[in-house]
Structure formats: C-alpha cells, structure tokens
C-alpha cells in the first residue's frame, strides 16, 4: 500500500495490439473509481513512468499488476521478470499474456520467415536494401542494441509464475470491472481473493451457455467461410457450417460474436481441465461431420470425408487462433528436427 493507504496499481503492455489497454479504458467513468482506489505507479500507456522507476521500487511494491501482451522478445521477458519481482499480485491480462494470442500464430513459422514477411515481403513495406533488425548495430557513436526477437512466442505464464488470469481478446470491460471490484473489496478486507492460479473475469462453461442461438443435434455436411453464406438468424452457426469455436471456448464474454452472425473466435481460451483448446475443437468438429457411410469402400470413405475437411480453411490457425503458445505442441516444426542448427528457413543465413 502507498503512504496514502491506497493499493498500488501497475499495468504493462508487452507483445500485444493495445486492445487490452483500451478495454480497461472502456470501463468509462468507473476509471475514476480506479484512480480513486488505486495509486497508479506504472502504466506506460496512460501515465509517465519509466522502466528505471520500476527497477527502483522495492520487491513486491506493486499490489496489483495487470500484464498484457505475449513474450515475443528479450524486452518482453525482462519486463515480465521485473514486474513479477515487483508485484504482489501479477495478473496475465488478456489472451496474449494468457495463451499467446495472435502474436503466437507466428509460432507456425520461423523467426526468419516472420522477419522476412514483415520487413521484406509485406507489400506495404519499402526496404530496398533489405535491412533486417539486428540486435546490435555499430554506428559511429557506438553500439546500438535493440531487444532480441525470439523464435517462439510464449505466454506470460511460461516465463514467470502468474497469480491470476483474465482471459479475452480483449477482456470484456464489465468483466474487468467485476475483477477490480473484487480486488478492491478484498483489499478492504470485505471479500476473499479467488484461489491462486484461477481464471477470473470469465465463466465456467462454454460460450454456448450464454449464446441465445437455437441449438440442435449437430451434423455438418460442409463448412463455409463467413463471407460465403448469410447465416439464418436465430440458429446455431456451427449447424449452418460456420466454424464457431463457442463449444470449446470459455464463456463470460456474453457470446457477442455469434449473436452478430460471426462464429466465436475462441479468445477466452479453453475450459477448466482442458489442456489444448484446438484439439478439443478439432475433435468436436470432426465428430459432427456427416460424411462417409457404413458400407462404403475405404477409399471412397476417406475421399468423402476429406472433401468435407477441405472446406475447413487453415485448421491450425482456426483452432489455435488464440491458444497456440499454450497448445500441447506450442509451435510448428520448421525445417526438420528440433534443437538442431539450421532451424530457420528462408534467406536468414
């Protein structure tokens, strides 16, 4: 607690888009309550504190630190370790910190290919001399250093121990507010903190529980991309062939996407006891595919099923859109075996 008796609040933004920060701001005028209750000691996005300030704090100085963003480079990791040390309660805030989120989709490729795509091949990039970021560059004034880019994106929890997780891309403002209220109450001794390690600000069942669309026994004969069909209103999207991650995704968001005709993206991550959200969605989806009948010869059988599977674009990207870093495999294998030189592909070397 600060001298004024207020708990100290920090928020940090590692490898992320900034949406989490905006989501916090989206609690609107309740932000004033936050300011009233907390003493903000670090929040680069909203207040002018430097890393140096944090380094100067004693360990455990920050009472509550919301950490959003994945661990993409050495700077992210350094800050994760620093904030862990300086915080009493460290919260993985949002999908990137929790499970890698969109940044972790680059785990499907190599560091070299990622850099190449971003700095050389992207149509909007002008880089005629083909310069790629270097960790160290010598200039007349001396040596410049930038953070080193990792091969594999990790979640916050894969780098440091995390006390709580608030899922979502981004977490819904009403859920953020609910968590803050609990924390405030707990700090005032009016409520208990949730058990350590738990996922807070979210539901205990899948999105379908909150989804008002009508659900029936499911059979899917083919899948569609969202732009291919106009979904029939009121009916479960999955039953209409639109991939909806809802059944395999933790609820709490209010099923916002399916209600506007867009299949759940899966941003709240897997449910309790589920290790791999993608595998769960894969098995559920494949189970309700209606293709191949008893009595068919094995070749025709496979062909019919493959034809349906052809309509699922990018299974890895779809099923692990948010949870790649936390998946069982964690990343793709590029260029042969792991742990050996020559891991990177492309023109890196």
């Amino acid at each position: 607690m600060s001298d004024n008796g207020k708990p100290r609040f920090g928020m940090y933004w590692a490898s992320s888009c900034g949406g989490c920060e905006i989501s916090v701001l989206n609690i609107h005028d309740k932000l004033l309550v936050v300011d009233e209750v907390f003493d903000v000691v670090f929040w680069p996005c909203a207040a002018d504190f430097k890393y140096e300030d944090v380094r100067g704090y004693p360990d455990g100085y920050i009472d509550l630190c919301l950490f959003n963003g994945a661990i993409r480079n050495t700077e992210n990791e350094e800050m994760a370790r620093l904030l862990r040390r300086k915080s009493k309660v460290l919260v993985a805030f949002g999908s990137c910190a929790y499970e890698g989120c969109i940044p972790a989709l680059s785990n499907l490729t190599s560091k070299a290919d990622t850099l190449q795509a971003v700095y050389l091949n992207s149509p909007s990039t002008e880089n005629p001399s083909g310069i790629l970021p270097q960790p160290r560059t010598s200039v007349p004034e001396g040596e410049l250093e930038i953070p080193e880019f990792y091969h594999t994106v990790k979640s916050l929890g894969q780098v440091v121990p995390v006390d709580y997780t608030i899922p979502g891309c981004p977490p819904e403002p009403h859920q953020i507010w609910a968590v803050l209220e609990t924390v405030v109450a707990a700090l005032k001794g009016q409520a208990d903190l949730p058990p350590a390690g738990s996922i807070i600000g979210a539901g205990q069942t899948a999105v379908c529980e909150e989804c008002p669309l009508t659900k029936n026994e499911k059979t899917v004969r083919r899948f569609y991309r969202p732009w291919e069909v106009k979904p029939e209103p009121g009916l479960c999207l999955l039953e209409q062939g639109l991939v909806c991650m809802g059944p395999a995704t933790r609820g709490g968001c209010g099923a916002l996407c399916p209600q506007v005709g867009m299949g759940c993206r899966g941003c709240y991550g897997p449910l309790d006891g589920v290790e791999d959200q993608g595998a769960r969605m894969l098995t559920a989806l494949a189970s309700v595919v209606e293709a191949g009948r008893p009595g068919m010869d094995e070749h025709t059988l496979e062909k019919e099923i493959e034809a349906v599977m052809d309509t699922i674009a990018d299974p890895a990207g779809t099923f692990y859109r948010f949870s790649m870093a936390h998946s069982i495999l964690k990343r793709a294998r590029v260029n042969g075996n792991g742990g050996k030189p020559g891991l990177q592909s492309g023109s890196g070397e």
């Binding site: 990791e77 990792y150 594999t152 990790k154 780098v159 964690k330 294998r333 792991g338 742990g339």
Partner: peptide, 14 residues
C-alpha cells in the same frame, strides 16, 4: 527440442 529451442522452457536468444 523443437519447443525448447528458444521455446517455452529455455528462453535463450535465437
């Protein structure tokens, strides 16, 4: 080894 190469377990620089 695929994962540990600068992966989740062992954050060595690439």
């Amino acid at each position: 080894a695929v994962v540990s190469e600068n992966g989740a377990e062992m954050p060595e620089p690439a």
